[in-house]
Design a protein around this nucleic acid. Structure first.
Lengths: 134, 134
DNA sequence: CACATATCTACACTTGACGTAAGGTTTAGA
DNA sequence: TCTAAACCTTACGTCAAGTGTAGATATGTG
């Protein structure tokens, strides 16, 4: 139907990952080509690119690929897909949410520590190197 | 000097890690016993426990052990230690700070997505299962 | 001192997330 | 149709962050 299909090389370049990574993600069920006959070349459409971007973002948040597999469909599934095991999905999402809240708290605290320490260090630095105005 | 020394088994139990992990962290320079003669048993004081807690917290934020090694001393070092390579430490901290800021942004976005999807799911769920009031 | 635990070192193994290379197949273009 | 480039599968390699285990040593207690 769509005309904007691309092959794995194009997709990999655009998303900034290797082809190997895409193969690997496919084996984990994170992504799949729209069409394929036997061992022919994989063809992808735009959603595949969006998925790779989303996977990268979730990875930066510290999710493992296994965890990502549990939530990625919520970004791309249609209502029909949701109909099976909806309650399970809700539970997973709520679990993720509380983990995220904890992480947000810890991250803010770490941020405060960092700023405080940077200031402390810079203060010490100024004290130790006052000879800058030769 | 202090009287509250503990051995590796106690420390491991309290911190919820294995002894092997503590050995491993020692090899990476993240932690070390207060006293040791040859191959005798390692003795730790309270700071070791605090270090393990801090390491766990930083790990939850997604820092690698190598990155942790770069910042952990800021929590426990005294002023003297700071005196060597202060500017380098400042640079590392500032680098971490900008990474943390990026991560905070992404995490907030992810949180919004999660909440939105949970609401969406619960709406669908209510629609699909109205027979709850038998 | 004897003995039961607790620790010691060293080497090997595991898991997640890929990297790299070999050898064969598909596809696009002249 | 012929060929080069892109892709295919299969399989071994790597790196981080541990975990397992064996055989030797250290330590605390009766």
């Amino acid at each position: 139907m769509s005309v904007d299909n691309m092959k794995i090389g194009d997709l990999a370049r655009r998303a900034g990952v290797s082809q190997r990574t895409i193969h690997y993600y496919e084996r984990l069920g994170l992504i799949s080509p729209v069409a394929r006959e036997g061992a022919s070349h994989r063809l992808y459409e735009e959603e595949a690119f969006a998925r790779l971007e989303k996977i990268a973002a979730l990875k930066r948040l510290g999710l493992s690929l296994e965890e990502i597999q549990q939530v990625i469909d919520m970004y791309f599934a249609d209502a029909d897909t949701h109909l099976q095991g909806k309650q399970k999905v809700i539970d997973i999402l709520k679990g993720q949410l509380s983990k995220v809240d904890v992480q947000l708290g810890e991250l803010s605290e770490f941020r405060r520590d960092l700023i405080q320490n940077i200031q402390h260090m810079e203060h010490l630095y100024d004290d130790a190197v006052p000879d800058k105005r030769a």
